[in-house]
Design a protein around this nucleic acid. Sequence first.
DNA 1: AAACCGGGGGC
DNA 2: GCCCCAGGTTT
Length: 357
Amino acid sequence: MSAASDNRWFGDLLLSWYAENGRQLPWRETHDPYKIWISEVVLQQTRVEQGLPYYLRLTNRFPTVADLAEAKEDEVLKYWQGLGYYSRARNLHAAAKHVCNNLNGHMPATYEGLKALKGVGDYTAADIAALAYGLPHAAIDGNGYRVLARVFGINTPIDSTQGKKEFARLGAELVSTDNPGNFNQGLMDLGATICTPQNPQCDNCPLSGKCYALANKQWQQLPVKEKKTKVHDRYFYYFQITLPDGRIIANQRKGKDIWTGLFDFPMIENATELEQKDLFAGKDFKALRKRMKGLSVVKEGKSIKHQLSHQTLHATLFFCTATAATLKDCEQAVTAGEFDELAIPRLIELLREKEDP
DNA sequence: AAACCGGGGGC
DNA sequence: GCCCCAGGTTT
């Protein structure tokens, strides 16, 4: 008896549960690999509730891979604004152009072909292959790791190289060859709605009778994760500089830091919190003042704190006027209304909401 | 192997 | 305050 038939119960229970309890989502009503691809990238590290409106707007504006390929990157980023992990949008756009320029506009139809696309890794390639083409590839995401670790009592860390191999092997063994798409979707839905990180609903789980973690009261210990990310503080001091003609200075961020390519205001970063007098006495502020002739600070806006996964951003916005400006480097002046149309970091949106009416 | 890349929500 | 989310790329 092969290992696959030993574990047939898993796929059988999962698929019958999914048939009754699966969520109805727009990308499940199509086999269009392009639209499935969009949904996959939007939903990387993103909850369905958060990603859904972005998926709908993107597929409405860019219904085909050619529509996406022909767009400017600025517009693609604008449709991504607020979703985070902006390299996803750049990779998606670059890959769409690659499909149109080098693959005759046809999406790859194999796991290997899909994985070769920018921004498509093991998980995404496997899920598109299963959903669009019915190929028997298991797509193990964070939900899948949790379900498998609990049901089979696997304590290998899910973020280790060995763990990834072990779970991939198990997934390949379990995946339904009849309906790999529904197998993958069912595994995710089960993890997202029943086998949740906290307070799993084991009473409603189709696998409860076979679950190691439930039988051994281990669900709080599984899955095992070894890396702890630590959060550090950053202090951003922004200057919204209004020119005599009413325009304001915008700054396009460069380098490999957060929000690369997006727009914010001229700013000074310091490793520690600064008093206003120390900030204004600093050489960075003097350099800014030199570029902006007649720069004067009208008022200080409220400070806000913006919590991210790996850093805590502390931001203060100063409202300024300048009688004249020397526009250099990446800086440019835009009207206030135009600025709102740019892909601006969430932090700036929050600061502007604090602006007095 | 570890670090980096966002924003939102649950508890 | 900590953890997690339909992960992938870079160093």
